[in-house]
């Protein structure tokens, strides 16, 4: 697992290195994908304990079989309008590299779609949006599969750096 994960991380400019299996999920009308190797498990929505003094997108913490893990709401994180949770809402538990060990973090998404094998020729650099407010740091690239666009996310960026920065600002 680590082999492929490193490839993905080190690929940087080389977009072709990103080919592989992705778990795709929906946020509003958009489809996102994260490398399947980062996904630990998918769980249904459970009661979340709010943690004070954290950024909006940190919804709180949950009890994952005895471990307390934070849960982020991706909609809020990406500046999208929050939505009432429904029975399709779920938490994708991902594993990211922390300072000393891997850390599990839950990501709240509208719904999980499927596992897709994205081929090299289907990959494309993420387009530039000029100097808008958008945070494109966490986008690895785009995958065009069967006419649909999947936004491929760098999980470490989504939960790692972003969260740390915002926590520091608090």
């Amino acid at each position: 697992m680590s082999d492929e994960a490193t490839v993905e991380e080190e690929a940087g400019g080389g977009i072709k290195g990103l080919a592989g299996k992705y778990l795709t999920f929906a946020l509003a009308n958009e489809e996102y994908g994260i490398s399947i190797l980062k996904v630990r498990e998918i769980i249904g929505l459970m009661e979340i304990t709010a943690v004070p003094q954290t950024p909006d997108f940190v919804k709180g913490v949950i009890n994952l079989r005895g471990r307390v893990i934070p849960v982020l709401e991706l909609r809020t994180k990406f500046g999208m309008v929050a939505q009432e949770y429904n029975d399709r809402t779920c938490i994708i538990v991902v594993e990211v590299n922390g300072a000393t060990s891997t850390i599990q973090v839950g990501m709240l998404v509208d719904s999980v779609s499927e596992v897709l094998n994205i081929l090299e020729e289907e990959l494309e650099e993420s387009p530039s949006f000029g100097s808008t407010q958008m945070d494109t740091d966490c986008i690895l690239g785009m995958g065009k599969v069967k006419g649909e666009v999947k936004i491929l996310l760098d999980v470490n960026q989504v939960v790692g750096k972003g969260l740390l920065d915002q926590l520091a600002e608090m």
């Binding site: 943690v51 004070p52 003094q53 954290t54 940190v58 913490v61 471990r67 307390v68 893990i69 934070p70 922390g98 850390i103 599990q104 973090v105 939960v159 790692g160 969260l163 740390l164 926590l167």
Partner: peptide, 10 residues
């Protein structure tokens, strides 16, 4: 329990 990785120093 620690709140896990990032939520340490609240």
């Amino acid at each position: 329990k620690s709140l896990g990785g990032y939520l340490k120093d609240i």
